[in-house]
Write a protein that binds this DNA or RNA. Sequence first.
DNA 1: AAGGCAAATGTTTTT
DNA 2: CATTTGCCTT
Length: 717
Amino acid sequence: MDVSTILDPLNGPQREAVSCDKKSVLVLAGAGSGKTRVLVHRIAWLLLVKQVSPASIMAVTFTNKAAKEMRGRISELLQITPQGMWVGTFHGLAHRLLKSHWQDAGLTENFQILDSEDQLRMVKRLIKEHDLDESRFAPKSLQWYINGHKDEGRRAKHVDHHNDAYEKTMVQLYLAYEQACNRSGQVDFGELLLRAHELWLNKPAILNHYQQRFQHLLVDEFQDTNTIQYAWLRVLAGNNNNITVVGDDDQSIYGWRGAKIENIQQFSDDFAATEVIKLEQNYRSTGCILDAANSVIANNPARLGKNLWTDDEEGEPIALYAGFNEQDEARFVVERIEHHVSDDLLLSEQAILYRSNAQSRVLEEELIRSGIAYRIYGGQRFYDRLEIKNVVAYLRLAYGHDDDAAFERVINTPTRGIGNKTVETIRLRARTDNTSLWRACEALLAESGLTRRALTAVQGFMALIDDCDEACQRLSLEAAAEYVLEASDLLAFHGKESGEKGRARVENLQELLNATRQFEPDTDEPSPLRAFLDTAALDAGDQQADEYTDAVQLMTLHSAKGLEFPVVYLAGVEENLFPHKMSLEEPGRLEEERRLCYVGITRAMSRLYLSYAETRRWYGQESYNTVSRFVREIPAKCLKEVRINANISRPLSAKISHASDGHDTGLLLGQRVMHSVFGQGLVLNIEGQGSNARIQVNFDDEGSKWLVAAYANLEAV
DNA sequence: AAGGCAAATGTTTTT
DNA sequence: CATTTGCCTT
């Protein structure tokens, strides 16, 4: 294989980015401009042309999916899988590091990862233990508070409470949380990054070793890095290593969870003589779609400035549909999906995107009614399911008895007569002895600190865990999991849950056994069980089921980032919904919503539909929204309004059928009417009775409006 | 320990 | 509106 294979398929700027010899390179890659391709080809370039050892390369992504894709594409391009390269997520790499240097990082050897649910439980418990009012100190906000500070690299001792009583308590709780985590060998997601950073700072020898090793750092989705992630990278890169970051300031949509778009600017300041390369040629969308995206995003101030262009044709204009309510909107979308299917497009080539999950319901109902297969992205991850977490907790507790989060979860699951009272005694003992719950149990058993009944139950539980431990050491991972499932009685426990639920739970448990069977520990982790537990904590465990059935894709705009579809429906482009009402208060949030819109538009390859509802039932209330400001930012020449008259057939006939319920307005749905000011129009909707009735009319010239029957003086035409 | 009922509470999500 | 949560009862 020669150099041409690496460079030939690339355009000018891409080539420059791939072969650039500068020590620090910032690639500003617009949507659909071949960002991943540049990263993959640059790695190939380093290996083949620069003869760099794979072991000196570290590539960092945000999601496991992206890491997996990168590894796959590198192997595909090189026709071999390079050994010794570190490709992974920030959290995954930090975790790997901490496992190798657990002592230097001040951790226990078998430290476990605390997911956000476990974290919330722990935080709740702490609030209770401190006798604080949950309404004043909401567990969720304490969790948010802790994670926020960790993302900024601050421990409890660093937080300045300004002598404010409330803030003081929060810091106190943060401190208590840190202590509880340390006591039970638990590390939350933010802690992985924070500890890894502290490891660099506190152990120069270790840092030096890794700086010597990783002379080439590559970072994907750089605009999503938060403070601690960037700090970690910067220290690792030092003054001598090579670092390439790829990102798009216009696609920064995670500011609300700590991502710092400013890191892009900071990067150029921190690394001397950074080469900045812009990738602006888009290989995804039609001219029309790009024009729209460019115009919308141009309304954001303080951009680094990119303008996407394409060789592709103008394409169809973007269609905008004004539904009279969300059902009508859904009907429109489904009708268009059916239309495209009859045009030989697959369902899976079409995606419905929305701002918030609550919107999916109506769309789903309409898809079901029409018998169209669909798949919703997002939602609960496999390893987050209750039944899965239960089994994993048994395994965790078997592996490391001091794992308090696992202990809390399964001490009485399935129920074995250990009630709150007993658990409270155990917690108290653990706190006074400053030890784990398991050790507290041992102490209590030794000195009979429990009632006879509780004593037997706890003893039974501990024996069960020891059995599981023994099974884990003796058996294969799969056999051990099977043993745990039986011995703990979890299979039967979940199986007897009512109806559909129980069946689904058993199915998932079976799926977990599958996962253990297929599991291949790929790291240098000697214990397959530990490796599996790590995967369960850090990896979503993508369900691959139905991945191959043809189905319409439904997801939020956030989860659509990085994907592309021939046809995209962007539903609910209304003020208050998108941009979301909540985001209008804080400064800077509107800009982020606009970037989200930019992400949405640029997902579409050839066709883009925008739709909104003039009336929407939202949290049980009727709301009247106008079309989103973002739509008004799209140039008129790119936009074509779909008039209701054009697809009157299904939506209206459905409405007309129950219009005869008699609203006593003398008008019928679908009827043409005349208004003295607005001119002629079509009756879309009638609500209420007689003169109180409100009528929605889509005027030919003025668009649709709601009118009060008593004053409107509508005449049938 | 399970089931029933009222109250609260609703952007976006990965690790 | 619909789902989840906490609290209360048996």
